[in-house]
Design a protein around this nucleic acid. Structure first.
Ligand SMILES: [Mn+2]
Ligand SMILES: [Mn+2]
Ligand SMILES: [Zn+2]
Ligand SMILES: [Zn+2]
Lengths: 142, 142
DNA sequence: TAGCACTTGCAAACGGTTTGCAAGTGCTAT
DNA sequence: ATAGCACTTGCAAACCGTTTGCAAGTGCTA
């Protein structure tokens, strides 16, 4: 089974039609080593192009199906990456936007403390954590 | 020195003119126990009203002056709170948007680990951390 | 291979935020 | 106290990422 066939199977297993736009978006996400914005993905989809609206809808569909994770890294823009990875966070360059994975989350104990101390909440179901800095390239250029 | 005078002095110390809109926005932030959105603040400014654009510019000015902190709690909306507080994080209700402070940040050691493991970054200057859950009121209502 | 439901493209709407510009106001120097 | 200027404000409109409506297109099933 080649990769096209397996992607197709993945979509069908999720109850989704294996359409051209979906297969191509999935392939782009599989090839990327960092989270991508909708604009990133749309700009990689040429010949034939895929409408940006279709990219939005495809990603939303993938999120609902649990195939993709939606991230809010900075300034109100949405980023997406495959959900097949272990829970992790990101390190973002304030200057160029470069994103690097941060493995190893140690928030479990803190979440418990948060619940214990909270007045208005009895459960904490998730958290968002990003680190910010300037990447070596940007530090050098300055 | 009453509170109006001290607010006025605070602004002047930052090299800012103590205008009516600025004094009123500052007072609203001082009175709030949780971060406020621009819409929140604008809706509290009646008789006479203050244009939403002015609220945006005032908050941006305050952020530059280090008086106010800009938070991105969840997609598409900016929140602001006084920067005079100790570093802390927030617990946000996914259902109604209620926000509660979370005191006690334990990220220092994790930031060091992140830097040590990073390939492309040599410093981490800050982090954003929010916890999400459903507040007791929303859990009950469901 | 035909038919239908699901999916896509296009245009337009949306909502938070930013910008341009003329009118207004706080501050400083008289 | 007042005049003058720079800074600030209000209003209208632009901006930009995202969402929605609808007709045309396409994957899947029978
Ligand atoms: Mn990642
Ligand atoms: Mn707070
Ligand atoms: Zn985590
Ligand atoms: Zn912290």
């Amino acid at each position: 089974m080649n990769e096209h066939e397996s992607s197709s199977a993945l979509l069908k297993a999720a109850g989704l039609r294996a359409t051209q736009p979906r297969l191509r978006v999935l392939s782009i996400l599989e090839d990327s080593t960092y989270p991508l914005s909708v604009a990133d993905i749309a700009s990689m989809l040429k010949r034939p192009s895929v409408d940006q609206v279709t990219v939005y809808r495809t990603l939303e569909t993938f999120v609902q199906a649990g195939i993709v994770q939606h991230l809010e890294l900075h300034q109100g823009r949405s980023y997406f990456e495959l959900a097949t990875r272990e829970h992790h966070h990101h390190l973002v360059c304030r200057s160029c936007g470069r994103v690097e994975d941060v493995e190893g989350c140690e928030m479990d104990s803190m979440e418990k403390k948060v619940v214990k101390k909270s007045k208005h909440f009895s459960t904490v179901s998730s958290h968002a954590l990003e680190f910010f800095g300037d990447c070596k390239t940007c530090v050098q250029t300055r």
